[in-house]
Simulated assay, not measured.
Amino acid sequence: MTPKKSVLTAAMVGAFVLGATACGSGSGHFDGKAPEEIAEEARDAMATLESVTISSDLESQGQEIAMQASIAADGSCEGSVTAEAMEAEFVSIDGTEYLKADEEFWQGEGLEASDVGGKWVQVPEGEMSLTGQFCDLEQILGEMSESEIEPDDWESVDGETIDGTETVGIRNTQNQDAGTTDLFVADSEDAYVLRSVRTGDIEGTVEFSDFNADFDISAPADAVDLTELG
Rank of each mutant, 00 (worst) to 15 (best):
S188T: 14
G142A: 05
G19K: 08
D158I: 03
A45W: 08
D190M: 06
L8G: 13
Y192A: 11
G126V: 01
D74S: 06
I71H: 08
I140R: 09
I149H: 13
T167L: 10
L58K: 08
E41Q: 15
M12Y: 09
G126K: 02
T180Q: 04
V116T: 03
G28M: 10
D182S: 10
K100Y: 00
G62A: 02
E41N: 14
S218T: 15
I140D: 04
L194I: 07
A20K: 14
S27T: 15
E146H: 09
G95T: 06
P3F: 03
V121N: 00
G110F: 08
S25P: 01
G108T: 09
L229T: 00
V121R: 02
D136T: 03
E40W: 11
W120L: 01
A11R: 00
S6A: 13
E150S: 13
D57I: 04
G200Y: 05
D102H: 03
G179S: 06
W120C: 01
G32R: 04
D177H: 10
K5R: 14
S76P: 08
E78F: 07
M128C: 07
S76W: 06
P220K: 04
E138I: 06
V168I: 06
T96Y: 04
A11V: 00
K5W: 13
A83K: 07
T180I: 08
R43V: 05
I71N: 07
D214H: 10
G79E: 07
I38E: 01
K33V: 11
G19E: 07
K100V: 01
I202D: 03
A178V: 13
S156H: 05
Q68L: 10
D225Q: 09
A219S: 09
T181P: 00
F208P: 04
I71R: 06
D152T: 11
M46T: 09
G126D: 00
A219G: 06
P151H: 10
E203I: 04
S27W: 09
P124W: 01
D74Y: 08
G159A: 06
K5D: 14
K119M: 09
G164Q: 03
E112S: 10
V116H: 02
S145M: 08
G132M: 00
Q133L: 13
Q63P: 05
Q61V: 11
L49W: 11
L226S: 01
A85G: 12
Q176K: 15
T96F: 04
K119R: 14
E160C: 07
S76D: 11
Q61R: 15
T227P: 05
A20W: 12
I170P: 05
E104M: 14
A85H: 14
E150Q: 14
R198V: 03
I93E: 13
F105P: 03
G24C: 08
C77R: 03
V185D: 09
F208I: 07
D57K: 12
D136W: 02
A113C: 01
D102V: 03
E203G: 04
A11N: 00
Q68T: 15
D57E: 12
G62Y: 04
T199E: 05
E125G: 10
L8A: 11
R43C: 03
A178G: 11
E89M: 05
T227F: 02
D187G: 08
M86G: 12
E207Q: 14
F208Q: 05
